[in-house]
Design a binder for these strands. Structure first.
Lengths: 339, 339
DNA sequence: CAATTGTATGCAATCGATTGCTCTTCAAAA
DNA sequence: TTTTGAAGAGCAATCGATTGCATACAATTG
């Protein structure tokens, strides 16, 4: 790799001058600048960002830690984020914690050591990363989910409100027995979903014995087993609608319905909590609640940039920006069969 | 951030000694080592990887450049890759070129300047990156697709063979009029797919006037428009089977069939070129050709690691490792209707 | 002509960790 | 007592770019 010094020798000046010339310092004469530029091009000079970063204390990398890449909920999010970051000349360094808090901590520590300039982080536990945070002096922004960490910005989804809206929607269609398939209780966000569910159920006046929540690991197998169980229960408890609070619950539900030959929405209704681009081509198209990942990514990136260039008179109080989604009515949910 | 020097001052020795102690240099006495370790822990020392990298000329980042994140073909691939890289203590720096060669070049240059240790790259043109390559002294491994770049390792899918296998499969079911919806010709891999298609068609003895390829941009809209057109053609040319060579063609086809009320596989057959995890829950489940992304990721990562630690007696001849997929028979493809 | 103001550039420190070489001790061997 | 040597540790250069301060020279002004 060509270095500043080599150019300096070729031109016959100091490396300081070369650096200034290339960086557009006005004190360098036009003539020198010209010389230096030519030589730099001739030698194919590319600044060593590592050295530059060491000096400037910033590297242009942003850590993006998400749970995983097998769930389209997060890949959509990541897609928008990388898009935004690239547009700003930043690069995303990827990490997946799979909801494993200790792996999460390791990733964060590792990324911070490598001196990413900032961190976009989907937290995986309620506690968040307050512990690690004390050691850190780079901006961290929680995305999608918000933990209890104080002092960390958060750009996130209102889980409770979203689920509540789905419950009200189903109730509006006439459903009285609704089961929500959600993630394990320890997973961040699930708690809020449960709160939203129960809150809406109570508010509407439905019975909590026929409107229940099943907390299950995020994989299709466990979910489909449990759904089978629900469907095999006594008719008066059997759900007429299922809310799939996470991606695997959707595929699990569809696979069970398919095996049993159940028709949607006649035999049962299904609403997903997050949209996916195949939901409108499936048979039937899946009614869902759509999250504004694009806007969230924009806002999160923008906020991170603000934090990266702290303006003296800009307050540094953490911001908590909550996003609402909206119902996307398709076909998989309809009025329950009269029975 | 605590630095070596601060520890040195606290302990009362030079920073060189601290560095050696922490790095397990045997020449440092056990007593000193102890002192240094304690002090390092007390001060919460974390080595500045930037400085270390500048010196050691490696940083622990691997660039991963893929076309996009909206196509599950690549997210699956990325998921496996990050998994493997993380297991090796490396981090993936993400870039998406969206099949834009100039963006691709920019990304590569940008990542290389930032001194990633190596590059895993899904090339987007036949020419590959030979031009850029000359300037580079880090290992580059092409994944999923192989370009014409000489001297670059490649771990990739045999597009021609895969498509040919699908054609033979459909022919075996009795199909004589098959249309393949593929990407634009300029996109790498599409050419090979076309070769595979035409090769099989010829080998079997089908007519190239009823077995055709539609080259379309990778979005649902263009694909569905064209599929409509095909279906509206004269009955004797109308395809009885469609091969969706990329992801968007699958959703496009399904959406058209759904709107027209066509039943699969009775009214038409559909085979996708790459699997997705919702293909088995859709109605009907989508017959597909499955690619071994897990193995490919393993091999690619392993190969990259080999390149990163070049063994003196290990030859540095580029390796070209081709992977085959396999048919995954589900329901969307069956014998054509007798007419 | 001397003093002042600019303009163009260089010197050297800095960022933080690493490492080749040197130096000091102290002990064992000759 | 001198030699040899090994252990332990420090000095200073290095990685490459940046930047505060100093300097040199020319142009302008009083």
């Amino acid at each position: 790799m060509t270095t500043l010094k080599e150019i300096a020798e070729a031109v016959g000046c100091s490396s300081a001058t070369v650096s200034r010339a290339l960086n557009g310092d006005l004190r360098i004469s036009a003539q020198r600048r010209e010389q230096v530029n030519n030589e730099a091009i001739r030698l194919g000079y590319q600044a060593n960002q590592l050295a530059r970063s060491l000096r400037r204390q910033k590297i242009g990398y942003v850590g993006v830690i998400i749970p995983n890449l097998t769930n389209s909920y997060y890949t959509y999010c990541l897609a928008h984020l990388t898009d935004r970051l690239t547009a700003r000349g930043l690069h995303a360094v990827l990490g997946c914690h799979n909801f494993d808090a200790s792996l999460d901590a390791t990733l964060i520590q590792s990324l911070i050591n490598r001196e990413v300039d900032g961190l976009l982080h989907v937290p995986c536990t309620k506690e968040g990363i307050e512990g690690v945070l004390k050691t850190i002096d780079i901006p961290v922004i929680e995305i999608v989910q918000r933990s209890a960490s104080r002092g960390v910005d958060a750009v996130y989804v209102d889980n409770a409100k979203g689920i509540a809206e789905i419950v009200r929607y189903l109730h509006g269609l006439g459903h009285r027995r609704i089961v929500m398939i959600a993630g394990r209780r320890e997973v961040l966000g699930v708690d809020a979903q449960a709160r939203g569910f129960l809150g809406a159920v109570k508010e509407i006046g439905l019975s909590t014995s026929t409107c229940t929540i099943e907390h299950l690991p995020a994989n299709r197998h466990d979910c489909s087993d449990r759904i089978e169980l629900c469907l095999d229960g006594p008719a008066e408890l059997r759900p007429t609608a299922i809310i799939a609070a996470h991606y695997f619950a959707v595929t699990a539900a569809l696979s069970v319905f398919r095996v049993r030959g159940m028709q949607l929405p006649d035999d049962i209704s299904l609403v997903a909590f997050s949209n996916d681009d195949w939901f409108d081509v499936s048979s039937p198209p899946v009614t869902t609640f759509e999250h504004p990942f694009r806007s969230m990514s924009n806002v999160a990136t923008q906020l991170l940039l603000t934090r990266l260039q702290p303006h003296p008179d800009h307050p540094s109080k953490p911001e908590f920006i909550e996003f609402d989604g909206r119902m996307l009515e398709r076909v998989s949910a309809g009025p329950p069969a009269v029975s």
